[in-house]
Design a protein around this nucleic acid. Structure first.
Lengths: 178, 178
DNA sequence: CGTTCTTCTGCAACTAGTTGCAGAAGAGGA
DNA sequence: TCCTCTTCTGCAACTAGTTGCAGAAGAACG
């Protein structure tokens, strides 16, 4: 039940149309909660139905017509509840770890190449995050609570990528001597 | 498309019935690829259909009757292919990061408690992994390739939990001064 | 022996996420 | 003006994962 809340958050930051949301998900929010435009349109419909958001009045409501949404008080309230709600962390889903375990059974042929490919991808992602940090969170932008929270979120992404880079580097080193 | 391969791996390690698999998923494999008994039964049916596994001959095949499965050569081959296949890492899905970002918009009321609760859960998980490491991977068990691979998988879990523990500790420290 | 409890398998119906495609609106060029 | 290309919205149909429940087999106990 996270997607509707992701959308509420994005809409509170800035009222948007479906496609604008999709683009923003491809960037910042999607870094830790991705969604396709399909999911987003469907969820916007549900949120409107539930009275959590509303479409800003458009001249001619019609198919193919751009619709801007904004959050209603009920939506903001729901988001506030959700922030404090108890919700256990979902168990990790790491296909690469699974593949490594399979490799222990059927042999690691071809696994090394996959590992270096992933290492490369994670290095790139890490670099991108660090760039964002340098650009959006200079020291003077770390004082208000909202800024600190946003920065902590980004740190989460950064440290997560660091974890992968380190783990993959180590794995390659350990398998390299075979 | 990871669940069938998770099941193949588990069955290669040891032929099992559906419920045995479920239990083993609750333990080791489920640490990075969880599944309910329902998913497992359905997938066993598909894998049998596809000729990747077969049920060991049972005296009286009937509903409610325990069925042991074993992997056929075609299943092993498929798993071998999968280990080397190119498959991009799925974007992270971390609801807690999302909630923190929402908190930056609607206020962090109640978030601290949730963070400490998660910190506690991740500490426990980390302790469990470290116990497994001490028990199953003493230094002399780290020489053959399969052992090294299995150990690397576990290290992945350990380092991932360490990441969460550190990030949460840091987040609490930074929000604590408010 | 019969009743009850647990184990094991599985169906049905749901929610969440993905993929392919199509139609309306508007911009831009011949 | 008409044609085409892009933008934006959305339907339909799929796969993956979850939840609730039920029926058969066998063990456990009177």
């Amino acid at each position: 039940m996270s997607l509707p809340h992701a959308i509420l958050t994005a809409l509170l930051e800035k009222p948007s149309s479906g496609l604008e949301l999709t683009r923003r998900f491809d960037k910042s929010i999607g870094y830790f909660w991705s969604a396709t435009h399909q999911q987003i349109y469907r969820e916007l419909g549900r949120l409107e139905q539930a009275g959590h958001i509303r479409a800003l009045p458009a001249p001619v409501p019609a198919r193919g017509q751009r619709k801007e949404y904004e959050v209603l008080p009920a939506g903001r309230a729901e988001l506030g509840m959700w922030v404090a709600r108890q919700e256990d962390p979902k168990p990790l889903r790491a296909a690469l770890l699974l593949r490594m375990r399979a490799a222990a059974v059927v042999g690691a042929t071809g696994l090394r190449a996959e590992l270096s490919r992933h290492l490369d991808l994670h290095r790139k992602q890490l670099a991108e995050y660090l760039e964002i940090e340098a650009r959006d969170f200079p020291p003077e932008r770390r004082h208000t609570e909202p800024d600190r929270l946003r920065h902590l979120v980004l740190r989460g992404g950064i440290d997560m990528e660091r974890f992968w880079v380190e783990w993959l580097t180590n794995a390659l080193a350990e398998l390299g001597t075979e």
